[in-house]
Simulated assay, not measured.
Amino acid sequence: MADDLETFAPVAEALADAARVVTLEHFRTPLAVASKGDHFDPVTVADRAAEAAMRDILARMRPDDAILGEEAAATPGTTGWTWVLDPIDGTRGFISGTPTWGVLVGLRDTDGPRLGIVDQPFTGERFYGASFGPSVAHWTRGDERRNLRVRTTTDLADATILTTFPEVGTAAEGEAFARVARHCRLTRYGMDCYGYALLAAGHVDLVIEAGLQVYDILAPMALVQAAGGIVTDWQGGPAQDGGTAIAAATPALHAAALDLLNG
Results as ranks from 00 to 15, higher is better:
residue 150 V to Y: 07
residue 244 T to C: 05
residue 163 T to G: 03
residue 95 I to L: 11
residue 80 G to C: 12
residue 216 D to L: 06
residue 199 L to S: 01
residue 45 V to Q: 10
residue 7 T to E: 13
residue 67 I to H: 02
residue 256 A to S: 13
residue 44 T to F: 01
residue 153 T to F: 02
residue 201 A to M: 06
residue 109 D to N: 10
residue 170 T to A: 12
residue 222 A to W: 03
residue 156 L to V: 08
residue 221 M to F: 00
residue 214 V to H: 14
residue 258 L to E: 10
residue 208 I to H: 03
residue 186 L to F: 09
residue 185 R to S: 10
residue 230 I to A: 09
residue 142 G to W: 05
residue 153 T to R: 06
residue 49 A to L: 14
residue 242 G to H: 04
residue 45 V to T: 12
residue 58 L to M: 08
residue 184 C to A: 15
residue 168 V to H: 06
residue 156 L to R: 07
residue 246 I to W: 01
residue 199 L to K: 08
residue 109 D to C: 09
residue 6 E to H: 11
residue 49 A to Q: 13
residue 152 T to N: 14
residue 60 R to A: 11
residue 200 A to L: 10
residue 15 L to Y: 00
residue 140 T to C: 08
residue 96 S to T: 02
residue 89 D to C: 01
residue 10 P to G: 05
residue 58 L to Y: 08
residue 221 M to C: 06
residue 47 D to W: 00
residue 112 G to L: 04
residue 144 E to W: 04
residue 196 Y to T: 06
residue 85 L to M: 14
residue 257 A to M: 13
residue 234 W to H: 14
residue 20 R to W: 00
residue 33 V to K: 05
residue 2 A to I: 11
residue 131 S to N: 12
residue 258 L to H: 14
residue 140 T to F: 03
residue 82 T to Y: 03
residue 188 R to E: 11
residue 209 E to A: 11
residue 257 A to L: 06
residue 251 P to A: 12
residue 78 T to N: 14
residue 227 A to V: 00
residue 211 G to L: 04
residue 139 W to D: 06
residue 253 L to E: 04
residue 109 D to I: 09
residue 234 W to R: 11
residue 227 A to E: 08
residue 154 T to C: 09
residue 151 R to C: 02
residue 239 A to C: 03
residue 200 A to I: 04
residue 37 G to V: 07
